[in-house]
Design a binder for these strands. Sequence first.
DNA 1: GAACTATACGGAACAGCGTTCCGTTTACCA
DNA 2: TGGTAAACGGAACGCTGTTCCGTATAGTTC
Lengths: 200, 200
Amino acid sequence: MADIDSGSGRATPRKRADARRNEATLLDAAASAFVASGVDVPVRDIAARAGVGVGTIYRHFPTRADLIVAVYRHQVEACAEAGPALLADSGTAHAALAQWINLFVDFLVTKHGLAEALQSDDAAFATLHAYFLDRLVPVCAQLLDAAATAGEIRPDVTAFELLRGVGNLCVGAGEPRYDARRLVELLIVGLRHGAPAGPR
Amino acid sequence: MADIDSGSGRATPRKRADARRNEATLLDAAASAFVASGVDVPVRDIAARAGVGVGTIYRHFPTRADLIVAVYRHQVEACAEAGPALLADSGTAHAALAQWINLFVDFLVTKHGLAEALQSDDAAFATLHAYFLDRLVPVCAQLLDAAATAGEIRPDVTAFELLRGVGNLCVGAGEPRYDARRLVELLIVGLRHGAPAGPR
DNA sequence: GAACTATACGGAACAGCGTTCCGTTTACCA
DNA sequence: TGGTAAACGGAACGCTGTTCCGTATAGTTC
């Protein structure tokens, strides 16, 4: 999948061959370990799977969050880029928003433990938090603004809040009696119908 | 607040005085430790606060979840008992449901880390899970049934699912940019307006 | 009041985690 | 074919929850 950090950067004098190889190996090992045991799989397990020492993991990925981000970067980027496309293609802004949220939920519920990690306030996950928010909040805000401008939804819910809420609802997906998708759907429906002042 | 385990039980020959004293001391210490540092405060901190050894904690409360349950039992009972009362007093079943959910949310958001613990799949929290579900699911189901029978809400959301969703939304409450109550409100609104088949 | 015993206590010890650190190995370049 | 900076492996550290057992003590019995 193309070489990592070859050419371009003159300032960084190019990493050693074994280092580049290990980084790729680690990404693969982490990805399969995440699938097998969730994103909270012990670091030692990932190291063993990759056939390296734990020190090697931390040299390449200073914190566990960096590893998670690296593994899922492609999919998060794809989700972010789908936002404007949906807005252009969908009949209404609300429909685009609903579809985009569905993409996000599909992504989250298929990654065991990712939703849990996303809303952990553990300092180790700060960069994970930051990456998801930096990348997705603007996209969500654009969809939200469009729907609000069109008068299709109540205008007082922020993109941060909605993403966080949806992420929270995805925690525990996979349990048979709990359908996160349905509850997220309820949330989106409520967004359309809820009066700004609320009941009572 | 009455004595603990006095009289009645002949089978249990009554605990020693120091044991009963320590149990009460531990409940107080745990309660204030939970307020100060969240329900995930280290066991050693609670022990230190109570002036006992960690062994004493585990003798009285075999698992951390038992301690949490013991500390919050009164409030959970109160919440459970409020359900039928609200149903009798409110104009509509949906209003009763909304108010009861509000009680639950108020309880959760004021207990740092409790919502997080509730949806943890850690085996240590199994009894915590079980207690909350045993006590609250039937109440929620009663409210839900009443509202569904009255045709005020879509009938395909289970009490378990709703409680879990609401609990999930309460995770991270306390963060300034995240208003769990508002999102729960959206969920309840969606419950009223959502068509069983959903959009699209 | 003294002796005896079941009960309860305290905290050292264990296991599992993330993370750090450093002696050793290895890839690259001259 | 050395020499050296880069990278590696895994022991070690600090922090968890939990267990275990020698010691202290409350309650009972004479």
